[in-house]
């Protein structure tokens, strides 16, 4: 295409089909889908603490490649974190396009939702608000995990939650992420018409899953807080199951 035409977006779109809008929409949905599913998986792994410190330690070590290489490589976790961060930024960028951009739009949607008393419309406002919170919380969380991947473990994480005083951070993020992800997946189903179930069924399913993961998340957080509280006196000490300690006395957890 001639660059003079290309410089005029409207005219350029008349010469060739502009496939960008379609790609962007697909990307917004697929990054969202990935993040929501990742978040649930992540939740499940983190919740392994409910099965005991050893279970959580095993999961952690698994992701550090300990059982493959016989040695922990926390850098592997950083790689995963980097990839998720990339997807997260992409999703944030794409989703931001839908946010109210100015006072007029903001007021319009709020008045609208208030007058309509329509669940799916109100849910969207929740999605925007939680999404906005997640910009900050998830960014901070991802940064931390990227830089200090070794600080994941039954005691290390618990110390962070309790002794470092981060539990309000995690509590807020938990609420925001579960709501955002749950609503997001529900909306994806409506957007693309799959699964093609009645909306009532989808909505029940959505609330069920959200409730399940919230309860799981809260219980998990409580477990870390409890361990952190009890472990407070030994701040900084790493967890090591007895068998591993016997096998490899020179290493602390996550080292």
């Amino acid at each position: 295409m001639h660059e003079i035409i290309a410089a005029q977006a409207d005219l350029a779109d008349r010469t060739i089909k502009n496939s960008w809008p379609a790609w962007l929409d697909i990307l917004q949905s697929s990054t969202g889908l990935f993040l929501a599913l990742f978040m649930w998986g992540h939740m499940a792994f983190v919740a392994s603490i409910l099965l005991g410190e050893t279970a959580m330690w095993t999961v952690t070590k698994f992701f550090e490649g300990y059982f493959i290489f016989g040695k922990s490589h926390p850098g592997l976790v950083s790689c995963v974190v980097a990839f998720v961060a990339l997807v997260f930024v992409a999703h944030a960028l794409l989703a931001m396009r839908k946010f109210p951009a100015n006072y007029r739009q903001c007021r319009a949607i709020l008045c609208h939702a208030k007058a309509m008393r329509h669940e799916d419309s109100t849910l969207w406002i929740w999605q925007v608000c939680t999404g906005f919170l997640l910009f900050f919380f998830v960014s901070a969380h991802l940064y931390q995990m990227f830089v200090w991947p070794q600080n994941i473990g039954p005691y290390a994480s618990s110390d962070r939650v309790w002794s470092d005083g981060l539990w309000p951070f995690y509590l807020t993020m938990l609420l925001a992420v579960e709501l955002h992800g749950g609503i997001g997946l529900y909306r994806l189903a409506l957007k693309w018409g799959w699964p093609n179930a009645p909306r009532g069924v989808l909505r029940t399913l959505k609330w069920g899953l959200t409730a399940f993961f919230l309860v799981l998340g809260l219980a998990t957080l409580a477990a870390y807080m409890k361990i952190g509280f009890e472990h407070g006196g030994h701040y900084g000490e790493r967890y090591m199951p007895d068998w591993a300690a016997a096998e490899n006395t020179s290493q602390g957890d996550g080292q």
Binding site: K17, N18, P21, A22, L24, D25, R97, K98, M116, H118, D120, S121, W124, R187, L190, K191, R199
Partner: peptide, 21 residues
């Protein structure tokens, strides 16, 4: 696609579905 293939068209729909209701 020329008519509704952008954010003022179908990709702009946020599926709040009050229209349907």
């Amino acid at each position: 696609y020329e008519l509704i293939g952008d954010d003022t068209g179908v990709f702009g729909c946020m599926s709040l579905l009050a229209c349907h209701d």
